[in-house]
Simulated assay, not measured.
Amino acid sequence: MTQEERQEDAMVAARLSAGAITAWALLAPALILLAIFVVWPIAYLVFLSFTTGSFTRAGLQWHGLNNYRRLILDPDVWQVLGNTLYFTVATVIPSLGVPLGLAVILNQTVILRGLLRTAYFIPSVTSLVAVGLGFRWLFQNDGPINHLLITWGVDPVPWLNSPLWAMPVLILLSSWKQLGFNLVVFLAGLQAIPRSRYEAAELDGAGPWQAFWHITLPGLRPTLLFATVTTVIFTLRSFEQVYVMTGGGPLNSTNILVYYTYEQAFSQFDFGYAAAVATVLLLIAIGLVYLQLQAWREP
């Protein structure tokens, strides 16, 4: 290697080194905030799940795997896990299907599209506590929904006092709350699909369903992945609607993992056990997101 080649290599290495230093300097503030507000809380949560005691003068004591053994043997946890699975699946499906259908319709509508998009989006920016109070008023025993049923000659339903009906009311609220956000996301994804693809399919004799299946869904793959992941995360972290409307009842039928964690931590003051439940919830969320990424991966 000649002297000139060695000098050129040294200059390239210096430029790369300077670029790396600049990149790390620009990333440092975000990485520090990420470490403080995300990595450290998660690490402390995992540590807390191996302890017992409280944040008092007595302090925390190492408890090993006892919290996780208790979690496995606790029948309430298995009921809460079943409630969480039911709530998540029954919320995610309509929260994706209904907005997708509405977005396809709105994408073909020019008149009032902006107004309708705004109207559908309003629930997403409304306080979940306020919405929960509104739904509790609607579905109370002497509320408007039961008055309407009586008008139609149907016996009133104890919506929030029935183990059978309380969870569907929560699912209805959560799906309605998520509808607007997903609709706007799907509408943006639809508008990014070239119109020429639909015109070519129409010339080839494809019907609306064939165009939807072979053009719309493949074109929305990244959008569907984003909407699915965010909807699952939103559903798994649901707390306000349970707290405001049912308090986990009746008969523990609407108690889900986040609310159960809250009860163990701030009602029973069993922070170690609550941290173990929260750690399991974190692992479930990570696992579900991983499965979704694999399911929606490009073939």
Rank of each mutant, 00 (worst) to 15 (best):
M1P: 03
V12H: 02
V12M: 10
V12C: 02
A14N: 05
G19N: 08
T22Y: 01
A23W: 02
W24A: 10
W24F: 02
P29R: 00
P29F: 00
L31H: 11
I32H: 00
L34T: 09
I36R: 04
V38S: 06
A43M: 05
Y44I: 14
V46N: 01
V46A: 14
L48N: 15
F50M: 14
S54Q: 05
F55D: 13
T56Q: 09
R57E: 14
A58F: 12
L60R: 04
H63L: 00
L65E: 08
N66P: 02
R70D: 13
L73A: 14
D74E: 15
D74C: 01
P75D: 14
V80E: 07
L81C: 02
G82A: 11
T84V: 09
F87L: 06
A90F: 15
L96M: 15
G97Y: 08
G97D: 04
V98N: 00
P99D: 00
V104S: 12
V104H: 08
I105F: 13
I105N: 06
T109G: 10
L115G: 10
R117P: 03
T118G: 15
A119R: 02
Y120M: 10
S124Q: 05
L128S: 11
L133Q: 05
G134E: 13
R136H: 03
L138E: 13
F139A: 10
Q140V: 01
D142V: 05
G143R: 02
I145L: 14
I150G: 01
I150P: 03
W152N: 05
V154Q: 12
V157Q: 15
V157L: 15
V157T: 04
L160Y: 01
P163R: 14
I171D: 04
L173Q: 07
K177R: 08
L179T: 13
F181G: 05
N182L: 01
L183D: 09
L183P: 01
Q191K: 13
A192W: 03
I193H: 07
S196V: 06
S196M: 07
Y198P: 04
A200H: 05
A201G: 01
P208S: 08
L220V: 09
R221E: 00
L225H: 03
F226N: 00
T230M: 12
T230W: 00
F234G: 07
S238P: 10
F239V: 10
E240T: 11
M245L: 15
P250M: 01
N255M: 06
I256F: 04
V258D: 06
Y259W: 02
Y259V: 10
T261D: 06
Y262V: 01
E263C: 02
Q264M: 09
A265W: 11
A265Q: 12
F269S: 13
F269C: 08
D270P: 03
A278H: 13
A278I: 12
L281A: 10
L282S: 15
L282I: 10
L283S: 10
I284T: 12
A285F: 07
G287I: 01
L288Q: 09
L291D: 06
L291T: 11
Q292I: 15
L293W: 11
W296L: 12
W296C: 03
W296I: 06
P299F: 04
